[in-house]
Amino acid sequence: MEQIIRELKEQIVEALNLEEISPEEIDAEAPLFGDGLGLDSIDALEIILILEKNYGIRLENTAEAKPHFYSVKSLAEYIVANRQK
């Protein structure tokens, strides 16, 4: 799990161009959207792309998957449970 959280933070910083934030600075339990990191709907789509490309997870229903996008930790848990590669 720790490994996935670390990976995910690095992938998010890179894919979302969070230039002024280092992966270590991201609180795994803090909300990604709204307040927290201030991500938006385009960022959410980029995270979906990370899940598809790096973990082989295809989201059929994005609305149902929404709770898993709350934080890095919830995403990591979702990846552990659903990863295809």
């Binding site: 894919a15 979302l16 161009n17 385009i42 960022d43 789509l45 980029e46 792309l49 598809e52 490309k53």
Partner: peptide, 10 residues
């Protein structure tokens, strides 16, 4: 095949 980037397309 892997999909394109919405953050670029926009």
């Amino acid at each position: 095949a892997e999909g394109t980037s919405p953050a670029i397309f926009v």
